[in-house]
Structure formats: C-alpha cells, structure tokens
C-alpha cells in the first residue's frame, strides 16, 4: 500500500461514481418555471407554486390531482399517485418534483413537498 495505489483507488471510486451519475437519468431535479417544465416533457424537474384556495383537490383511486399557480398567474395541473402529504389541505406553497407529461398536459409528480405554514414557527418580532 503506497500513495500511488491509494490515488489509483480514489480515482477509480470517483470514476465509478461519475459514470453512475452520467449513466442514470432523473438524478437531479433543477428548480424550473412552469413554462420550462411544459417545454421539456419527460425531464425530471421541480417547480414551486401556490395552491389557490378555490382550487379543489380531486382525489381518485390512483392518487390525487390539483392545480398550482405561479407568481405570474400561470396554472399547472399536477397529478400525484400516492400519499397526500399530512398538511396538504392547509398549505399555500407546494413544491412538486416529477415530469411533465404531454399526453394529458399534466405534471406527474412523484414527490410533493408542502411548505409548512409559518403558523407555528412564527418569526419573533
């Protein structure tokens, strides 16, 4: 065991890691705008938006869907198959991760994060 061999080993591990990152899809999720997500269907992204008070959450047997609105007022239909996050109903801002699907113009989210309302983590002063 000498320095050279250790460097070779480290390079090999790093190379292995890099090749795994390059070979697989969906490892990164850049924050993008609604329009970018819609223009790049099939690309894994995350978007943030507000859930309008009057927009209802439509549950079905496979999951639930809802509408997000961004700062400029653009709307995005989102579908998530799975667990509705615990404080989803009363949250305002939602972050969704997934891909936009062209077939039904819906964002298929595989993860939905709710931004906890600041109700019980209020800023002091």
């Amino acid at each position: 065991m000498n320095r050279k061999k250790i460097i070779v080993f480290i390079s090999a591990v790093v190379l292995l890691t890099v090749s795994i990152i390059l070979m697989s899809d969906d490892l990164f999720s850049p924050y993008v705008s609604f329009s970018y997500a819609e223009a790049h269907p099939g690309k894994y992204v995350q978007v943030i938006g507000k859930r309008g008070k009057e927009d209802e959450v439509k549950p079905d047997e496979k999951g639930f869907s809802f509408t997000l609105t961004d700062d400029s007022g653009t709307k995005l239909n989102v579908f998530h198959s799975g667990v509705k996050p615990l404080n989803f109903e009363h949250t305002e801002q939602v972050v969704v991760l997934g891909k936009f699907s062209k077939d039904n113009s819906t964002f298929i989210a595989d993860k939905v994060l709710v931004k906890c309302p600041s109700k019980y983590e209020k800023e002091s002063r």
């Binding site: 292995l16 990152i21 697989s24 490892l27 990164f28 999720s29 995350q46």
Partner: peptide, 15 residues
Amino acid sequence: PMSVTEKFYNNISIP
C-alpha cells in the same frame, strides 16, 4: 437551483 433525487443516493449507495 437544483437538488438531487432519492434515486441519486440509492444508485450511489449500491457500489
């Protein structure tokens, strides 16, 4: 800004 997905960690953890 971007983040990595769970899949990133899962894939990396295999080797």
